[in-house]
């Protein structure tokens, strides 16, 4: 059993829905993004395209971030999800230096979205759980998945461009999409074995 994701770049419209639904789900502090959408131009006018690249923690099979962690705060669940135990994290940021995909963010100090106003009721309920002085990242929406739901960014994607499932099961939707559409991972040359695949546009 290994959780993984396929992101269909043909369907993706760069709407930021994943980045923002993730924020809404986890109440991540300012400047912390478990999901992001990158934009890039290809070609020269007028033969040019805007390309969108939605990214998140790739939940590597051989995660450098875990190798360098001195406290085992960063660890891998048996189902392949790479997670951080905030209780154990000393905030040494070695994992940020180790992640080849810049998917880790240092939550340096408690901070809220309306400067000078303290936390909103929402932030009190959702954001204040996150302790400061530690590193944060996507956990494949562990709680939702445990509750039998899809990750927030997958369930919400308006273009239905994100698919989540078991990479070890060749019959799962993700596995089939990756096989049929020739899914690929980013920086495969690093041998990190990401669990997030992209389907070509």
């Amino acid at each position: 059993m290994r959780w993984g994701m396929a992101i269909d770049l043909k369907r993706c419209i760069g709407c930021y829905g994943c980045q923002l639904s993730c924020k809404a789900e986890h109440g991540t502090p300012p400047g912390v993004f478990f999901a992001r959408v990158l934009k890039q131009e290809e070609g020269r006018y007028p033969t040019v395209r805007q390309l969108f690249l939605p990214v998140l923690c790739f939940h590597c099979d051989d995660p450098p971030c875990v190798d360098v962690c001195p406290t085992e705060a960063s660890f891998k669940w048996p189902d392949g999800v790479v997670d951080i135990d905030a209780e154990k994290c000393v905030g040494c940021r070695a994992c940020m230096m180790a992640c080849p995909y810049t998917q880790r963010y240092y939550h340096d100090e408690e901070q809220f979205y309306f400067p000078g106003n303290g936390p909103t009721p929402y932030e009190r309920a959702r954001s204040q759980r996150h302790e400061a002085g530690v590193v944060m990242k996507c956990n494949f929406c562990r709680d939702r998945v445990r509750a039998g739901k899809q990750p927030a960014c997958v369930a919400n994607c308006p273009a239905i461009a994100r698919y989540f499932g078991d990479l070890d099961d060749p019959t799962s939707e993700v596995s089939r999409l990756i096989k049929d559409r020739g899914g690929y991972t980013l920086h495969p040359e690093l041998g990190t074995g990401p669990a997030v695949y992209y389907l070509p546009p």
């Binding site: 290809e42 070609g43 007028p46 033969t47 990214v55 810049t102 070509p200």
Partner: peptide, 25 residues
């Protein structure tokens, strides 16, 4: 930091779409 969009695959594969029917504007 290593850049994501510089990933070889992503560039090759996505460059393909940019190959739209050329319009000589």
């Amino acid at each position: 930091y290593r850049s994501l969009t510089s990933s070889p695959h992503w560039r090759d594969k996505s460059a393909a779409v940019a190959g739209v029917p050329p319009l000589s504007v």
